[in-house]
Design a protein around this nucleic acid. Structure first.
Length: 561
RNA sequence: GUUCUCGUAGCGUAAUAGGAUAACGCAAUCGCCUCCUAAGCGAUAGACUCCCAGUUCGAUUCUGGGCGGGAACGCCA
């Protein structure tokens, strides 16, 4: 808030507006001020002691109308805003929750966002949660800032695993049985295949042969393929609905089958593709990386080949400003290689490719594996969380309406939130205890705070904006709340810039904490009209901000809970 | 072996392009519901920010070197 005006006013005594803007910071302790300018770094160029510089700058700030008080502490210039001035800005947030934290920074820019990208024939397990909800949150955050976003589910619908599934289906089941069962049945076939293939390696040859038949477009093989895809997509879309995840495109690996050849031609033309042990690779020695393998010795293409084709297709189709891949850090090298190859190809979007990496999920006893059957299915986690929410509601608020709906919002929200709370690079060791904890820094806490706001607003009646006495919300506690509401947009912008949804999660929890502190010591619905309307205004602004923040993360805000 | 990444109270984590006394939650102990939702609020206790150097007025943050966890390193995706 006010950084622009302050930096303009402080572009004096040999300082530039840019360097002031860069140096301005919010003190950790609000007792030190609303905003502060550390003057240490100016000491060298100005040839003066930091406190002297701060003292010299003080008069330029003091006269600003939104500034109440300025102090020099050590080498810091600490600035206190006029609380009345700040608090007055809340009205817009209270009146219209459509504008909370929005901006126009993304106008006219398209972002391609590749996330979730499920593998066909593998049910959703908790390892897929991060890419899905981080991607989903980024999708909404970018949209909130005015970007045009293309959400892409780059389906893993290609590869020998389909051959394996055909073999398994023919051996132990039938097309009809698979079609009439859920995705777990399909998985059980997959698991059984791997168990038996250990002793009968000839099964793998059979599987490869079947996959070749899919590739060749043979009818029988593709009938199996279609059923596998259908069964998986049906199950996955139920999960997406619960997580409020949407895509604009499901163009997956199979989609790019006929689009790789032109890319390989470019590579050949530029003499980048060289033969190595029968395979065709792009050498990346110069860039300190192992070669990028694009065509196997048997002529088949690889994951990276399809990614190149996808990059070209996306640039051509969407003319993206940025193309982001929300994929685990496991694939760091893959993306580094991919982006380098695209640079060598002089691809039009070569400077706008970005890997948004996140940490891995493991279980207490090690890594997860669908093959070995050691997994936690996301559906089970969601169901357990909802069940627990239901139990708590039954205990605390048994007469509430729409119990089921609220339990779903709270339970699913808690699961989503747990994946969006930390910096995305952090690894996660999955634990039911952690995910099912609804106390403290969790979405149920934020939802609870929201419901509290609404409850007070219901009791208080309509806000009479003309009657608001702004000085009534200038107490320390109220002022902290107000500042948090007004800086919500900054967090959204940070979240977009850093591709870190946790900036939003952190902000709304912080706001909820501040509001609850305010709520405990200040009655909102009081007789005095000026005070009451002011507090209702603040409460409404908080409610709108919390709801907006939750919705950016893909979490519902029930009116009661 | 090489490269990348992470290492902060018992546990999970924050710390705004290096800033002021390292913050929050869980767990623990104690306190607060005749009053707008106690899924809440407050208090106590808990840290040589893995180690050693360096850069800097200032390092959890940057650089180098260790130690420890994770990941990747050609015919999978």
């Amino acid at each position: 808030m006010y950084e622009q005006q302050l930096s303009k006013a402080l572009a004096v005594e040999g300082l530039s507006q840019e360097e002031v803007l860069l140096a301005l910071e919010t003190p950790k302790d609000s007792k030190l001020g609303d905003i502060s300018l550390p003057c240490f770094k100016f000491a060298k160029t100005l040839r003066q002691a930091p406190p002297m510089i701060a003292a010299k700058l003080l008069p330029y700030v003091e006269k600003l109308d939104f500034v109440d008080k300025v102090e020099v502490v050590g080498g810091y210039l600490n600035i206190f805003y006029s609380r009345r001035h700040i608090v007055g800005g809340l009205k817009a947030y209270a009146v219209d929750n459509e504008v909370v934290g929005t901006s126009k920074e993304g106008a006219g820019k398209t972002i391609c966002l590749d996330y979730s990208s499920v593998n066909i024939a593998k049910p959703f397990h908790i390892g897929h949660l991060s890419t899905t909800v981080i991607g989903g949150a980024l999708y909404r955050i970018f949209k909130h800032l005015g970007y045009n976003v293309v959400g892409i589910n780059h389906l893993g619908d290609w590869g020998t695993q389909f051959g394996k599934l055909i073999v398994a289906t023919r051996k132990w089941s039938s097309l009809e049985e698979v079609a009439n069962n859920d995705e777990y049945f399909l998985t059980s076939l997959y698991v059984r295949y791997h168990k038996e293939a250990e002793e009968h390696p000839e099964m793998d040859d059979e599987a490869r042969a079947w996959f070749k038949r899919i590739e060749d477009g043979e009818k029988e093989a593709n009938a199996y393929f279609d059923v596998f895809k259908e069964v998986t997509m049906k199950a996955v879309s139920t999960i997406y609905d619960r997580l409020k995840i949407k895509f604009d495109s499901y163009a997956g690996e199979s989609f790019y089958n006929d689009k790789m050849e032109p890319c390989l031609d470019i590579l050949r033309e530029k003499k980048l593709l060289v033969e190595s042990d029968g395979a065709q690779v792009v050498n990346l020695d110069e860039y300190g990386m192992p070669p990028c393998l694009l065509v196997k010795a048997d002529g088949a293409t690889l994951y990276a080949t399809r990614d190149i084709a996808a990059a070209y297709y996306r640039k051509q189709t969407y003319d993206f400003y940025k193309c982001l891949y929300v994929v685990a850090y496991q694939q760091n090298l893959h993306f580094k290689q991919l982006f380098q190859v695209l640079k060598l190809m002089d691809f039009a979007g070569k400077d706008d490719m970005e890997h948004v990496a996140y940490g891995m999920v493991s279980m207490e006893d090690g890594a997860m594996s669908t093959r070995s059957g050691r997994v936690v299915w996301l559906k089970d986690v969601l169901d357990k969380a909802v069940e627990k929410a239901e139990k708590i509601i039954e205990e605390k608020n048994p007469n509430i309406k729409d119990k089921k709906q609220i339990a779903e919002s709270v339970g699913v929200g808690a699961v989503i939130f747990s994946a969006l709370w930390n910096n995305r690079i952090k690894d996660i060791v999955f634990s039911f205890d952690k995910v099912l904890n609804f106390d403290g820094e969790t979405s149920p806490y934020v939802q609870y705070t929201y419901a509290r706001c609404l409850s007070a607003l219901r009791k208080g009646g309509d806000i009479d904006f003309a009657a608001v006495d702004y000085s009534a919300i200038a107490s320390d506690e109220a002022y902290e709340v107000a500042k948090s509401v007004l800086s919500f947009g900054d967090s959204v912008e940070q979240a977009a810039k850093l591709r870190e949804p946790c900036m939003v999660s952190r902000h709304i929890v912080d706001l909820a904490e501040k509001f609850n502190r305010f709520y405990i010591d200040h009655r909102i619905v009081v007789d005095d009209a000026g005070t009451r309307n002011a507090r209702l205004l603040l409460t409404q602004a908080v409610a709108n901000t919390l709801k907006t923040g939750l919705s950016l993360l893909g979490i519902d805000a029930p009116n009661e809970m």
